[in-house]
């Protein structure tokens, strides 16, 4: 990953020199985002794109490995394009939620810092691809609806806490407002991602039923 700007040369006070900010925020989100909030910000476009592009790359490689068992250009290159809808949706929703916040840094910085909190879900995706492809295909469904479902749930909860810390500590808003921002961002993102990935939903009722049916099928 190339460095984005002069701000990359800033001292990394308060964290170990070896680990990335992403790793630090995954383990100790409150301290990491408090530290991040003190750092210089930037308007540079690349800053807003670099971590979302990395997320799209992880998704593309994961999709290719889960489908073909290898990272192959026939899947990974095009999957990179259309699976970019996930980080794109997140960029748009975090922009929508923070747009009217008076104290926020430039949007490029907000987006980059929001994606710093993606390490838990990114590591889950990589672990999922690595674990499943070391097992026979016919055990995948049992894994996905068993141990990996619990891993999903844990990561989902921890990611919510990490993003709560992002809103509270990196954007320095009150905890109650951070909870509202987190809820709004999650609602907008997950609704869009689920609809595009899973269901044709002409109404909220159909969407709710489709999601219930999907959960029912997983739990069966």
């Amino acid at each position: 990953m190339p460095d984005a700007a002069v701000i990359d040369r800033q001292p990394t006070a308060g964290r170990q020199a070896v680990w990335s900010l992403d790793a630090w925020a995954a383990i100790s989100p409150a301290a990491a985002f408090r530290d991040i909030a003190t750092r210089p910000s930037s308007h540079r476009t690349w800053l807003a794109l670099r971590r979302p592009l990395f997320t799209a790359m992880v998704l593309a490689c994961g999709v290719s490995v889960l489908s073909a068992g290898v990272v192959t250009p026939r899947i990974a290159l095009s999957a990179f394009v259309y699976w970019a809808y996930v980080p794109l949706t997140e960029m748009l929703t975090v922009a929508a939620v923070t747009w009217r916040m008076k104290t926020r840094p430039p949007m490029a910085t907000v987006i980059d810092r929001f994606f710093i909190g993606h390490a838990p879900s990114t590591l889950l995706m990589l672990a999922l691809a690595g674990t499943l492809t070391s097992l026979p295909f016919d055990t995948w469904w049992a894994m996905l609806t068993g141990p990996l479902l619990w891993a999903f749930a844990l990561v989902l909860l921890w990611s919510a806490y990490v993003d709560f810390c992002f809103f509270r500590d990196a954007l320095q808003i009150r905890p109650a407002r951070a909870v509202v921002a987190l809820f709004a961002q999650r609602l907008l993102t997950w609704t869009t991602v689920f609809v595009v990935f899973g269901v044709v939903a002409p109404s909220v009722r159909v969407l709710a039923w489709e999601l219930t049916d999907a959960v029912r099928e997983v739990m069966k």
Binding site: S20, L21, D22, C61, T72, A119, G130
Partner: peptide, 24 residues
């Protein structure tokens, strides 16, 4: 071996980039 290398190298390197990158 090639398939195993492709999987391990890609997933391992992406994890390494995530955990040890120098982006601030």
């Amino acid at each position: 071996g090639l398939a195993l290398f492709s999987r391990a190298a890609a997933l391992g390197m992406l994890a390494a980039v995530l955990l040890f990158n120098r982006m601030t």
